[in-house]
């Protein structure tokens, strides 16, 4: 039993962090805010070259063949740096292509030349092996050739051209782009049934990993501010109202990180309670990220209420991730439906 990152994993996190800090600084989100796409194409390709999209992909498809806990650590790191772009959909998209035996597509996605956006069914509809139907939120669809449409039964890749009437919507998260599209019977080009590979659970774990990363970054941001900001002649962190808020953030971040790693190992190894652990991870991490986001704004005072400060970018990303791979209420209902954990 081991739930601590290995040296190898620590190196991986450090390399990803270095890249993100130098090539995708958070300021870029504000700079691109009016651009149709949140993605800087050059940085996207460089990230792909570094292997950010193919960490968990089998080597025969050009990936690194690493396990889900590595990917989870990477997604936590991406979120800590608010990396913009459809990393989640593209990573899972490459996996669908690979499992369907489409080497050229898997390679193209992995190299960063083909983007995959995410389509989330909102309301009634259906997602099946041949076609999909319903109204979808499209997340980061700009420039994407495919959209990933996931359900508990299986995951589809659908060509972007299958969504004829895309209406752009203002995105609450300045680091992402949002649109809506309704389709009657869009053709599925690749279908991966859950029995072959539980992609829904992988997506759930990676969303949880992102949320855990946000919760962690927010803790650090608040703690640093609490040490530096002086009022009444002393750092505000001497006051328990602030100190305890930071302590609670640290605990929430630790809980969500521990659980998402636990879940990653369970999903990876196909443990019987994998779904239980994945849903628990998403539920805990959602609460942690949103709670820490709210607390961080408060700890920063007036500055925390400004567009210029990063706190809201984290909170907004948290709300975005919270609505991927199941609505928060659905995740809880699914969790309660599971048998007792192993």
């Amino acid at each position: 039993m081991d739930l601590l990152p290995s040296q190898d994993q620590l190196d991986l996190i450090a390399a990803a962090s270095d890249f993100l800090e130098s090539r995708l600084p958070i300021e870029g989100i504000r700079q691109r805010a009016d651009d149709p796409s949140a993605v800087d194409p050059d940085a996207w390709r460089e990230g792909a070259e570094l292997g950010l999209l193919t960490l968990g992909l089998d080597e025969e498809y050009g990936g690194s063949g690493r396990l889900l806990d590595d990917e989870a650590l990477l997604f936590a790191t991406l979120a800590e740096h608010l990396a913009p772009g459809p990393y989640l959909a593209s990573t899972l998209g490459a996996r669908v292509a690979a499992q369907c035996g489409d080497l050229p597509l898997a390679t193209a996605i992995g190299e960063g030349s083909t983007l995959v956006g995410l389509a989330e069914l909102r309301g009634d509809g259906c997602i099946g092996p041949d076609s999909i139907k319903g109204t979808f939120d499209l997340i980061d669809h700009a420039g994407a050739a495919y959209l990933l449409v996931a359900s508990r039964q299986g995951t589809a890749l659908v060509r972007a051209t299958q969504f004829p009437d895309i209406g752009d919507l203002p995105s609450a998260d300045p680091g992402s782009r949002l649109a809506t599209a309704t389709v009657d019977a869009a053709t599925v080009s690749h279908w991966l049934p859950a029995e072959t590979d539980p992609l829904w659970l992988r997506g759930t774990v990676l969303a949880a990993a992102g949320l855990a990363g946000l919760a962690n970054a927010l803790t650090t941001m608040s703690t640093e501010h609490a040490k530096l900001r002086v009022q009444f002649g002393r750092p505000i962190g001497v006051h328990q109202a602030i100190k305890h808020a930071c302590a609670d953030m640290a605990v929430a971040a630790d809980a969500s990180r521990s659980q998402m790693l636990f879940a990653a190992v369970c999903v990876q190894s196909g443990r019987e309670d994998a779904a239980f652990q994945a849903y628990a991870a998403k539920a805990v991490a959602t609460k942690a990220a949103i709670g820490n986001g709210a607390a961080t704004i408060q700890v920063h005072g007036g500055m925390g209420y400004t567009y210029e400060h990063n706190a809201h970018l984290y909170l907004k990303r948290a709300h975005l991730l919270a609505h991927l791979f199941g609505e928060p209420a659905e995740v809880l209902a699914e969790l309660l439906d599971q048998g007792a954990p192993q």
Binding site: D2, L3, S256, S258, F262, A280, V284, L332, L336
Partner: peptide
């Protein structure tokens, strides 16, 4: 009630994961 049951179920799962991490940490 269902929602709150699910929430404590999730939270207890994470406490267990934290306990595991703590044990791994202590062993190291």
């Amino acid at each position: 009630i269902a929602r709150r049951l699910a929430e404590v179920r999730a939270a207890v799962a994470s406490l267990r994961a934290m306990t595991y991490v703590g044990i791994c940490d202590a062993m190291r």
